[in-house]
Amino acid sequence: MTIIIWLVILIVNAYTIGFSITLWKGDSKVGAIAMFVVAVAIVITPFFSVLR
């Protein structure tokens, strides 16, 4: 189960950071930062909930 959760986290993170990079290259730096924060949050929050 933990492995699967980590896998999901990994995929979503790759996706989010990818999107963040696209935004950075595009016109919205603020958006890129926001997406990056979301990406970081996705890594941190599981430690308080599912992986507790």
Partner: peptide, 14 residues
Amino acid sequence: LFKIKEFEYAIPAL
């Protein structure tokens, strides 16, 4: 809020 035009792409992450 964060000036993301194609906000649909943020949905999976959110």
